[in-house]
């Protein structure tokens, strides 16, 4: 097996305030291979989003301390300066956050927002060329009427379209790794199915890897290769999708699966 794209070892996250010192993530270790979709599951409050934010070191350094190691493409992310990190964020590792309405700036058109990311990662590009590439990406994300959408503002668009635009924004600079935080939670089932299919396509065609954060085990069963189960900041179980769903070892994983099954089998 080749070297993993991302390997995290003994990652801990501490929150410090005047009164107390809390450990939010407890020495977790995992890796993500190239062209792999890894699911990160757990109940709300288990530290899923914090894990993604720690990888990109997006949390304010004043209150949050990270220890351990995050190795990505021959670089140790935790030793990089803020300037060097900026070369990674968005360019090599993209984050797609939970709520597409919050991820888009309501006062800017879609075009301005897409071009912002593109021009920042590629300073030589002409505006005309950037517009062409952006429109192409929207089309690739199955956004209908892409050239019209470019001139619109976020409030004019539906939730599904916004989510696809957020996805285009994350992928436009062709990162190697996408951290997708609950990318389908706010969406209808039909749109969710479409977005998940898109993920699988992109992973096959574009050499992309995805860390998919979700609390929906159905989504995991649909598209992940491996699963990480997080409970109160501890990584309690890892395995392939088939292992986790057929023979969950940890009691917490079993209870997660059981509650989903009970929910589906719930008889009035």
């Amino acid at each position: 097996m080749s070297d993993p794209l991302l390997s995290v070892s003994q990652l801990s996250l501490f929150h410090q305030s005047q009164q107390q010192h809390t450990q939010l993530i407890q020495e977790i270790s995992f890796f993500i291979q190239k062209q792999e979709i890894v699911g990160l599951v757990g109940e709300s409050g288990s530290g899923k989003s914090l894990t993604a934010q720690s990888i990109l070191q997006l949390l304010p350094r004043k209150n949050f301390k990270i220890s351990g190691s995050i190795h990505f493409e021959d670089k140790e992310l935790l030793t990089l300066s803020e300037k060097e990190l900026r070369q990674i964020r968005g360019k090599r590792i993209a984050l797609m956050s939970q709520d597409p309405s919050a991820a888009l700036n309501p006062t800017l058109t879609i075009q301005t927002q897409l071009l912002e990311g593109l021009c920042r990662t590629n300073s030589k590009i002409t505006k005309k060329e950037a517009i062409r590439i952006s429109t192409e990406w929207l089309e690739r994300m199955h956004v209908p009427n892409a050239s019209l959408r470019m001139r619109q503002y976020p409030h004019e668009l539906s939730g599904g379209t916004k989510q696809r635009i957020a996805l285009a924004m994350a992928l436009i600079s062709e990162p190697a790794l996408l951290l997708a935080d609950e990318p389908t939670t706010a969406l209808d089932m039909t749109v969710q199915a479409e977005i998940l299919l898109l993920f699988k396509e992109l992973v096959q065609k574009n050499q992309l890897s995805v860390l998919l954060i979700t609390h929906d085990l159905g989504v995991v069963a649909n598209c992940c290769d491996r699963v990480l189960v997080l409970k109160a900041g501890h990584l309690v179980e890892t395995g392939t999708v088939d292992e986790i769903f057929s023979t969950p070892k940890h009691a917490y994983t079993q209870s997660l699966l059981q509650s989903k099954r009970n929910l589906l089998a719930y008889a009035n």
């Binding site: 969710q192 998940l196 159905g218 069963a221 649909n222 769903f245 589906l264």
Partner: peptide, 9 residues
Amino acid sequence: SAIPITNPK
């Protein structure tokens, strides 16, 4: 048909 089911196979 769009509802994901919790059985990967």
